[in-house]
Amino acid sequence: MTRLIRSLSDAPAPLPGGPNYPEVGATRTGPLPAGYHHLHHTVRVGRGEAAYEAAGAAVTTWAMHRATGARVDSVAERAEPGVTLEVSLGLGPVRFTAPCQVIWTAYTDRSTGFAYGTLAGHPERGEESFVVDLHEDGTVWFTVTAFSRAAAWYTRLGGPVVRALQLAYARRLGRALAALAAGR
């Protein structure tokens, strides 16, 4: 099995002013830290090697995020530790921008994905991973794992509504990824 898992500590030169939380890498190493809201969402997105390859590429090249209508601005074409990006969601002039940095990546025969951590200016503080797994039975599964807490006044004020929106977005990512894995 080819195994290539890299983390921010492997990156050539992490940018100053990196992640704004101390538990960097916890979505890979576990357990998720206390004091944060935890999110874990898993959904089947396809079957077979072709679906796995398509889903893995869509996750790591930002195509999955873009398929949901999110804007992703990054100088890198795919996820690698240390890469910074801005993800923004919203309609028209009302957009929420979330600056992030890729913390770790996994490019293996059976698991492909990455995690990004929040940077200053993000409305939340924490980390989120997006991983596609090819199981022995040929099914392809997508998992979002995250820990986060409010970093801006409006996310603190939003409380449970923000949590519901995060889960809704994870589900939307899963639906978008299933369509991309199927070639739609």
Rank of each mutant, 00 (worst) to 15 (best):
1 M>L: 09
1 M>K: 05
5 I>F: 09
6 R>S: 12
7 S>P: 02
7 S>W: 07
10 D>S: 09
10 D>V: 05
11 A>W: 04
12 P>E: 14
12 P>C: 04
14 P>N: 06
15 L>Q: 14
16 P>S: 12
17 G>H: 12
18 G>N: 09
19 P>D: 08
19 P>C: 08
22 P>Q: 10
22 P>E: 11
26 A>W: 00
30 G>M: 12
30 G>T: 03
30 G>S: 05
34 A>Y: 04
37 H>L: 12
37 H>W: 09
38 H>M: 09
38 H>L: 11
40 H>G: 07
40 H>M: 10
41 H>S: 14
41 H>V: 15
44 R>D: 07
47 R>Y: 13
48 G>I: 15
51 A>Y: 08
52 Y>F: 15
53 E>G: 03
54 A>C: 10
55 A>S: 13
56 G>C: 15
56 G>D: 13
57 A>E: 15
57 A>M: 15
58 A>F: 01
58 A>I: 03
62 W>L: 05
64 M>P: 06
68 T>H: 04
69 G>R: 02
71 R>W: 14
71 R>D: 15
73 D>Q: 14
73 D>V: 15
75 V>G: 12
76 A>S: 03
77 E>D: 11
78 R>S: 08
81 P>W: 08
81 P>A: 10
86 E>R: 10
86 E>K: 06
89 L>I: 14
92 G>N: 12
94 V>A: 13
95 R>T: 13
96 F>E: 13
98 A>Q: 09
101 Q>H: 05
102 V>G: 01
102 V>E: 00
110 R>S: 07
111 S>P: 01
111 S>E: 15
112 T>E: 13
112 T>S: 08
114 F>T: 02
116 Y>N: 00
120 A>V: 14
124 E>T: 10
125 R>E: 13
125 R>I: 09
126 G>N: 07
126 G>C: 06
130 F>A: 05
131 V>F: 14
134 L>S: 11
135 H>N: 12
138 G>E: 13
139 T>I: 08
140 V>C: 06
140 V>D: 04
140 V>A: 07
141 W>V: 05
141 W>K: 06
142 F>G: 03
144 V>M: 09
146 A>H: 03
146 A>R: 00
147 F>I: 00
147 F>G: 00
148 S>P: 05
153 W>F: 13
153 W>K: 03
153 W>H: 04
154 Y>W: 14
155 T>N: 13
155 T>K: 13
157 L>K: 14
160 P>S: 10
161 V>R: 11
161 V>D: 07
162 V>L: 11
165 L>C: 03
165 L>S: 04
167 L>I: 09
168 A>M: 06
175 R>S: 04
176 A>T: 05
177 L>D: 01
178 A>H: 08
180 L>S: 01
180 L>D: 02
182 A>H: 09
183 G>F: 06
183 G>Y: 06
184 R>I: 07
